[in-house]
């Protein structure tokens, strides 16, 4: 007859599965001590990442990105607006991040996830401040018409590192974007030119079909837990070790943004430097993945 004690006893009767659920920190610490994680990854490695361009046929630009199980679908639809008086030569970008109820048990219809508006704002700020897109390239007719770019990103499966996957899908969608050729019709409205070109109108933007993307931002989110730094966390890791840091660098290695929203672990300089170094490595990986996806499209 035995008494339950802290090192075994009754607890040793538990399934690994049950132990992981009841004592998540103890479960993780036994892995972290061996510099590994339950899915077998070393602490500094991100999950398998893939991107497929043109996932949404009816959109002007789109991409499907997966980091591990986290899946994001981004699509761009272009509409026409009247530019403001202060910036008659500039268009506009509206970015919205959605977490529909399909993506996670914590989201219910009518009760949006707390993370959604936070990631939405973070994305908007990052893309605009990185200078990836020159708003002047969105102008059609100075003072009269410009493009409004609606970028909607839907999370189809939420398993941590939502911002990283969303940013990658946004960048991929922009690189896939084909701006429709338009002309001005008789009523002064901008319309897509049909192939037959009835009416013999001149296109307004024959030359500018693709946007020039400079200083593309890429990101990596890391979890800080005691002395450990875990790159690209899963949803389980994010929920039990809450302190995270997101570093955004552009393709030339410049820091675009650093985001550490509170958390019990303090971010000493050395930890931040380590995160930045991990992000640099990640930027190279992501750039390759994006280039391969774009090259794949051009072959068609």
């Amino acid at each position: 007859m035995g008494l339950p004690d802290s090192s075994g006893g009754l607890l040793s009767e538990l399934d690994v599965d049950a132990f992981r659920r009841l004592f998540p920190l103890r479960f993780y610490e036994s892995h972290l001590a061996k510099s590994t994680r339950p899915d077998g990854r070393p602490l500094d490695k991100a999950r398998d990442t893939s991107s497929a361009l043109g996932a949404v046929a009816s959109a002007d630009g789109s991409a499907l990105v997966k980091i591990g199980s986290t899946t994001m679908l981004a699509a761009i639809k272009m509409e026409v607006m009247t530019p403001s008086q202060e910036s008659p030569d500039e268009g506009c970008i509206a970015i919205e991040f959605h977490m529909p109820p399909i993506c996670s048990p914590i989201v219910r219809p009518g009760r949006p996830a707390e993370a959604a508006p936070v990631v939405s704002k973070q994305l908007s700020d990052t893309i605009l401040s990185s200078g990836m897109i020159n708003l002047k390239e969105l102008s059609l007719i100075s003072g009269k018409a410009a493009w409004m770019v609606y970028l909607d990103i839907y999370c189809l499966d939420a398993d941590g590192a939502l911002f990283d996957a969303a940013l990658l899908s946004a960048v991929a969608a922009f690189s896939h974007l084909q701006i429709p050729v338009v002309s001005m019709n008789d009523e002064g409205k901008v319309v897509v030119m049909s192939e037959e070109n009835e009416g013999g109108k001149e296109p307004v933007n024959k030359e500018k079909r693709k946007l020039t993307l400079c200083s593309i931002p890429f990101s990596l989110t890391c979890i800080l837990y005691k002395n450990y730094i875990l790159a690209d966390p899963t949803a389980e890791e994010e929920s039990i070790m809450e302190t995270l840091v997101t570093v955004v660098l552009d393709s030339s290695g410049q820091l675009v943004s650093l985001y550490k929203p509170g958390g019990s672990v303090l971010a000493y300089t050395s930890a931040i430097q380590d995160c930045v170094a991990l992000t640099r490595q990640r930027v190279r990986e992501l750039q390759t993945i994006l280039d391969e996806a774009t090259a794949g499209m051009e072959v068609d």
Partner: peptide
């Protein structure tokens, strides 16, 4: 309730 028998429950 976090486990049914020895298996953990999702929610």
């Amino acid at each position: 309730i976090m486990c049914l028998g020895t298996k953990s429950v999702r929610e």
